[in-house]
Simulated scan of single mutants.
Amino acid sequence: MKLYRAAAFSSGGKGGNPAGVAICSRALSESTMQALARDVGYSEVAFLHPEGGSWRVRYFAPEIEIPFCGHATIAAGAILGLNHGVGQYDLKTNLANVPVVASMSNAGWMARFVSPRTFTRELAPLHVERLRDCFGLAADELDAGLPPRLMNAGANHALIALRSRRRLSHMGYAFSELLQVKRELDLATVTLVYRESDDVFHARNPFAAGGVYEDPATGAAAAALAGYLRDLGIKRSGSLRIIQGEDMGRRSEIFVDYDAARGTGVRIAGEVSVWGGSELDARLMAVD
């Protein structure tokens, strides 16, 4: 088993969201994967092993398994490309088959995938109020044109849109209180966004459920945002650029493209900076 470390959705070779990608010859036990994810300490580690003509993949945060993770999928695509060449690789996640394409550009490795199907649901007023309280947000600080919703493209995310980029930059939250709301709603993250234009959004993604204060780039949430915009008729199709991680000092860029057909998967792409790989040592292997 070889563990690679890479930053997905990096911008000009800098920033991005660190992910672990473990290339395994066989399936590992859940306890081993959870222990390794906790040891690595990134927001997610993707564990892959060959299964027929595809690759079986599972995603683990330091505290929990995640049904789908966009940035770790982008990182996995680049690592598969590094090992086996450019082209398409079919990933079998817990939810759906997700094709990922690895390619090269002047900046280095790139990857893109098509997300699982999307859907959007109402959030109860009580949950919206509790989420606002967690972040210390007044009702008039929210963007009325982008109402709070639960959105999904493989995992649940709650969307909170703010009127001010400055307010987004000052995000802070009550960790334990938000964790409780996330557990009640089965949320992966809360996605806070500021709409700069119809095509450009700034985002921040607290990830208390996974034991991480904030994610610098969240591909699954980006796909869910596109589904949300489509479902609410705000932007029925087209392209988006999502800038995330700036306020953490890890600027990330997520490129999004989607069609008008409701529920269909969203195309997510980004640059990947690969830091290298190493064989896991005996201490870690002994967990299995």
Rank of each mutant, 00 (worst) to 15 (best):
D133P: 02
R121H: 08
S43I: 05
F47E: 00
G245S: 11
G87K: 07
H84F: 01
N94M: 12
G13V: 09
L178Q: 04
E141M: 12
W109H: 14
D199L: 11
D133R: 15
K14V: 11
R241F: 01
L48R: 00
G16K: 02
T264N: 13
A78T: 05
A111C: 09
L159F: 00
R26C: 04
R38C: 10
T32C: 10
G81Y: 09
H71A: 07
D281K: 10
Y258R: 09
V266Y: 02
A22P: 01
A61R: 03
E63K: 14
R112Q: 12
D215A: 08
P125N: 13
K92G: 00
S31T: 13
H49N: 10
Q244Y: 03
R121T: 14
A27G: 10
E141R: 13
E65M: 05
Y213W: 15
C24R: 06
A161D: 03
F113M: 12
V114T: 14
A35M: 09
G108D: 06
E279A: 13
V57N: 01
R26I: 03
L225W: 03
V256N: 01
V45N: 03
H49A: 04
W55H: 06
I268K: 04
L137M: 08
L284H: 06
T73D: 09
C69R: 02
F60Y: 12
A7T: 05
L225V: 15
